[in-house]
Nucleic acid binder design. Structure first.
Lengths: 195, 195
DNA sequence: CCTTGAACTGAACGCCCGTTCAGTTACTCT
DNA sequence: AGAGTAACTGAACGGGCGTTCAGTTCAAGG
């Protein structure tokens, strides 16, 4: 047998990425075989190589897409206001964006060590760029007196870790809505750098 | 060939665990083979089975040891003072303990998904027990008016995530000492739940 | 209607996996 | 000196791995 009906490359391509993302996030990159991904898509393993040159590149593309989407989404957020207002926007944005893509977040946080050096460096650069946006907000607040931060770089890392941590416990069917959680985290973030 | 000289089980056993911990943390559980661990120890793969029934149990034992050590170390910390003082002690303890064992922390955070259901449940219970200690401190501070926390459970998770995040960026040769970092994090943690 | 080519199969490549086990060595105990 | 045994080797087991590729199917274009 070969293909069943109609043109599929526009459908199968995304399905491969979706299946790979879900499986990598759930079981880990090394623990998932190309045959498992293929089975999820409904195809033989060999067919995957029409959509990715190899397994490593598949992982890298997923991470790269995630980080690019994160940066693009942040650029689309409103820019006005003082540092306190911008921190609030950043925190809420971060929480919402991350809650919407648990698999991609999990993957991008966990599988960095499975990237080859060149790919790792590229993803790290994107991650650094994102952190710099928060760093700039904190620096401005520090300069204008809104914030009182002993160590800017440490505060940046601390807030990012706190906010990203939401994905380890949040469940859609829990008692708090996405927006409630975002508001509560934004409040804690502001307090952590204020006074 | 067989064993070279003297009795080795008291030496080889720990060496197996050390090598497994380092390799699992570095490359991930699924990506490390028993032959790689054996090579690190200086032994053939078959000999590992004198020290662990299988690879899964080796992972579980490493995680279990880490969590038990964490709980035991916390029990050994001073207990007096009000909620603010105890939060300070907790935060400094958490940072120091985690900075001292980056591999074990990394492993325990990352490889939960590679545990079989029963083993997973046991580790989760230990983790929950640890989180409850922080939860109790926050609850007391909330009751006495030291803290102003909108959601206790969320605040607990947020602080744990913030504090544990130190391991993702801290380097021994960086500009901040272990104790400086602990003090800075403790201060941010206190502010995040105060006023 | 016939050719083209995109989409996919199915089998094969060499390699590494976790685990088992009979056999070998070197130490300890009597 | 001899027996016993803890520690370990080295080979083997069945199976799954990532990747390649010749061949097959089928929709579309001329």
């Amino acid at each position: 047998m070969a293909r069943k009906q109609g043109s599929h490359s526009g459908i199968t391509g995304p399905k491969v990425r979706d299946a790979a993302l879900r499986l990598f996030a759930r079981h880990g990159f090394a623990a998932v075989s190309m045959r498992q991904i293929a089975a999820e898509v409904g195809v033989q393993a060999g067919a995957l190589y029409l959509y990715t040159p190899d397994k490593q590149t598949l992982l890298f593309d997923l991470m790269q897409s995630h980080m690019s989407a994160l940066l693009a989404a942040w650029q689309a957020e409103p820019t006005g206001g003082d540092a306190t207002a911008r921190l609030d926007i950043f925190a809420r944005f971060h929480i919402r964006f991350h809650l919407d893509r648990p698999d991609a977040v999990f993957l991008s946080g966990m599988e960095l060590r499975n990237l080859e050096p060149d790919n790792f460096a590229q993803i790290e650069r994107l991650r650094h760029t994102y952190e710099d946006h928060l760093h700039a907000i904190l620096a401005e607040g520090q300069a204008t007196g809104s914030f009182a931060i002993a160590d800017l770089r440490l505060a940046t890392m601390a807030l990012i870790a706190m906010l990203t941590g939401v994905n380890t416990w949040y469940r859609t069917d829990g008692r708090l809505s996405r927006d409630q959680v975002a508001a509560l985290y934004a409040d804690m973030a502001r307090r952590a750098v204020t006074r």
